Simulated scan of single mutants.
Amino acid sequence: MTQSNFNSKRIESIDVFRALTMFLMIFVNDFWTLTNVPEGLQHMDAQVDAIGFSDIIFPAFLFIVGLSIPFAIKARRNKGDSNGPILVHVFKRTLALIIMGLFMVNFESINADLLLINKYAWELIMGLAIFLIWTLYKPAKKNQKKTILQLTGLALLIFLAVIYKGGSNDNVLWMQTHWWGILGLIGWAYLLNTLIYLFFGRSLVILWIVFIVFHVLNIEEFASVTGIPNLKFVISASMHVAVCAGMIVGSVMLHFKALEKEKLFLLFVLVLGIVSLVYGFALRPYWGGFSKVRGTPSWASVCIGISCLSFLVLYVIVDKLKFKTWTNLFKIAGTNTLTCYLIPYFIYPLVMIFALSLPDILLDGYIGLLKSLVFSFIVIGITALLNNINIKLKV
């Protein structure tokens, strides 16, 4: 790729990175259906000082959320949007992610014995409601029909909230925020970092200061280094720092695109990745070890390093060498990411309702892992089919 191409062409590796991350997220999220999954592939328990393969997928997605923010803001400004319309879009998107995450995380602690309907029917209705509300309806579709569908989805969510029962039979609870769910965590981290970029993104110095502040707040969650109470922006600072790291990489990419200095960008990502890895391993004994569940700063730093180097490799392969035919297997997940994430919320409850099952041999060990890989491709295929008939979630 020439330097002029670096300045003018779309960065396809961003979509590929997002698609690959979503594909792997579906893969590891299917491990609950298997037995004898190799320990190194699983999520590690909260008190175990280790990082499993599953523990690096979500922070990679947070990184790609941050990586996309500078490009999204730039695109909207190029269309003539001022901060006002952009803020409206950001808040609407955040609210959608938080609402979806709230319902999903509460399904995990639902009390099937006290529920008015079958718990898997509750999950199916949740998925249907989300599609009705947040499907990307064609502009040609009559506003009245769109409004009716969205109001129907809203009514279904309200119904699910009204009948919800959680907790134990002796201590019945209504819906709680718990840990917000994956989409909720993304929503909160996206909101704070996007607001920062919207008002201060033109200054890389300020973005670096914010990154350092987030990291210090992450350390404060485990040991006081400033002598002041830990300040928490709703969720762990480890989430914010992962998004901020991606946001800095995206900002630096835009900066060097304008200067047509691709090599400096590549060098920056390489150095940031290596430094993050070395730093994460170096501070491991001091700030809680490695733990995704607890969101330790050492885990966050190592995952940022892995994300940087992974993106660098993908950029070289896809954007520089133009070797991208292989991405056709899953690239739809990079543009229809939310749709792809929601498909299992239909498949799993249908399997449970109709008591469908596979032979145990297909659910065990390495054969089981192959089954989960096939499941990921099935989800990708369903997403592609839905896209072909213009069904796509968009927030």
Results as ranks from 00 to 15, higher is better:
residue 394 K to C: 11
residue 320 K to W: 07
residue 46 A to Q: 12
residue 138 K to F: 11
residue 41 L to A: 11
residue 153 G to R: 06
residue 355 A to L: 10
residue 27 F to A: 09
residue 19 A to V: 02
residue 60 A to N: 07
residue 393 L to N: 01
residue 266 L to P: 03
residue 375 F to E: 03
residue 259 L to Q: 15
residue 230 N to M: 11
residue 81 D to N: 15
residue 311 F to Q: 02
residue 260 E to L: 11
residue 37 V to A: 10
residue 269 V to H: 01
residue 81 D to H: 12
residue 148 I to F: 14
residue 60 A to Q: 05
residue 115 L to G: 11
residue 207 L to N: 06
residue 23 F to H: 03
residue 48 V to I: 12
residue 113 D to K: 11
residue 361 I to Q: 12
residue 50 A to Y: 04
residue 63 F to T: 08
residue 101 G to A: 10
residue 321 L to W: 11
residue 345 Y to G: 07
residue 86 I to Y: 07
residue 271 V to S: 07
residue 95 L to V: 14
residue 228 I to C: 13
residue 236 S to T: 09
residue 81 D to F: 14
residue 318 V to C: 10
residue 141 K to S: 13
residue 117 I to V: 13
residue 160 L to C: 00
residue 31 F to S: 06
residue 167 G to S: 09
residue 114 L to W: 09
residue 350 L to H: 08
residue 194 T to W: 00
residue 86 I to T: 11
residue 287 W to A: 09
residue 154 L to R: 08
residue 130 I to W: 02
residue 94 T to C: 06
residue 192 L to E: 04
residue 20 L to Q: 02
residue 275 V to C: 05
residue 179 W to Q: 15
residue 109 S to K: 11
residue 96 A to R: 01
residue 343 I to V: 11
residue 312 L to K: 02
residue 83 N to Y: 09
residue 98 I to E: 06
residue 255 H to F: 13
residue 250 G to V: 00
residue 288 G to N: 08
